[in-house]
Every structure is written in structure tokens, then in C-alpha cells.
Design a binder for these strands. Structure first.
Lengths: 115, 115
DNA sequence: CTGGGATATGTAGCAACGCAAACTATTGGT
DNA sequence: ACCAATAGTTTGCGTTGCTACATATCCCAG
């Protein structure tokens, strides 16, 4: 498991959070687990990263939250809003462009013809 | 041309700079051009980003520079050091792991076998 | 010969963001 | 009675890319 410098994630976290919430509501703790499992353990984010990020997204109107109590534990279930769905779609396109550019420069593979 | 938020690059710039210098010495201005051309125009970085980054890499011992004068213009030619080459190799592996993880989460396509 | 674009490098200060660290609280198993 | 797992929050720090500005040379157009 390579050690990933923390800056690598910068700017990409929001997209990941939105993507994880795409299939339905999840609370913060479950979001962290989804990221860990969905990345084969590569992305194991601390709570100090994820919770503030979720707050940010809510302030930005991309997600909204409802408190619920499950077996005595209070938890906040987040779900995408309309603009959240739109943002996710945009961010996917941005990621494709970005990762293609970086891969091209880093791996020096000429542009893949038509994928 | 999608507008890329500036934070996206964070943590990945060093790898790109090292990669651009892999084929031989280049000065700052040429590095900027190489990034722009090699990314199909997607990465057009301002001098205020690239020059400080090159200074950082030199302080870190990953590149070294020699001043040269070409037709009255003083320019600084950067080249990889030994540890720079090593760092590049490491960063490539990190990028592969990172981009694979993000793509998996974002596109939720379980890796397509062989297209 | 004068203005401006391209070439070439530099710095100060700002804003954003992910993270470590610390904290509170409940449930459930040993 | 303890302690891990679950669930959430916040303060403050460090890194980093960018904006804006500054300097200087070369060369071409007018």
C-alpha cells in the first residue's frame, strides 16, 4: 500500500462524496466505509476530513441532511440535491479531462483514439 | 474547455514537472509549454505556479539548474537528479493507484477487462 | 525609432483544503 | 467494569497553487 501524500486528494474529494451518495442516503460514517471499500482500501479517510467536507457540501446546497436515530445512535443521513446531481455530473467530466491530461503527461501515452 | 478548479492539481504538479524533465534539460518557460502542448491545452499553468514549484523541487534535491545565456536571454535549465528520477518513478506508481481508485469510485465501472 | 508581443524569470500575499488531534456520546460484547 | 466499534464535531496547522505585479531582453510592425 503506497503512502499517498494528503494533497493528492485536494479538489477531488467533493466529487467522491457526491458519487458515494448517488445511490441513496448515507450517513458520514457509512460514507467513509464506502470510500474505503470502493477503493480497495486505498482511500481510508479520517473523520476530520470527511465530516467538514460534508458540511461544506451542505452549505453549498449540493447535499442535504436529515437526523435519524437508529438503535439509540443519532446519525445524520445525507442525500444529493438536484444541484448536487448536476455537480456530480460536471465533476465526472472534469475528472475525465484531468486524469486524461495527467496520464498523458506522466505515462506519455498519446491520446487514446476513441474510447 | 472545462474550467478546472485550481485545487485539482494540488499534489500532482511535482510529478508532472519531473516527467517533463525526464527527456532532458528544459528551462521554466519551456516546461510550461511542454505541459500545455502535452495535455492538449488542458494544463496551461501560470508562471506564478511553475517557477516556485521548480524552486521547491530544486531545494528538495530532485532537480538541479544551470544558468545559460541564449541570444542575450538568461535562462535556467533544469535537469533531473538521481533522486529526482527515483521520485518520478514513485510518483508514477502513486498516480496509478490514486487515479484507479478515484475512477473506480467515480465511474463505478468495475475495471473493464480488456477493451 | 517606438510600441508591443513573445520570451524569460521572479516574488508577496491570499485562499482553500485535507489532516492530525482532541473531544463527546452510545451500544454491545467480555 | 472495561473497551472496541459506531457516530459525530471542532480547532488549528501546513502545504500549495494562483493572482497580481515587477523586471528585462529580443524582435517585428508601424
Amino acid at each position: 500500500m503506497l503512502s499517498m501524500r494528503p494533497e493528492l486528494l485536494k479538489g477531488h474529494l467533493d466529487a467522491l462524496l457526491l458519487a458515494v451518495l448517488e445511490d441513496g442516503p448515507r450517513h458520514g460514517y457509512a460514507v467513509i466505509e464506502a470510500l474505503r471499500d470502493g477503493s480497495d482500501g486505498a482511500l481510508d479517510l479520517p473523520t476530520g476530513t470527511v465530516y467538514p467536507a460534508l458540511h461544506r457540501l451542505e452549505r453549498a446546497g449540493l447535499i442535504r441532511s436529515d437526523w435519524e436515530t437508529v438503535s439509540g445512535r443519532r446519525r445524520r443521513a445525507y442525500q444529493l440535491t438536484g444541484s448536487g446531481r448536476q455537480a456530480l455530473s460536471d465533476q465526472r467530466a472534469v475528472w475525465e479531462q484531468f486524469s486524461t491530461a495527467v496520464t498523458a503527461l506522466l505515462m506519455r501515452n498519446p491520446w487514446p483514439a476513441t474510447t
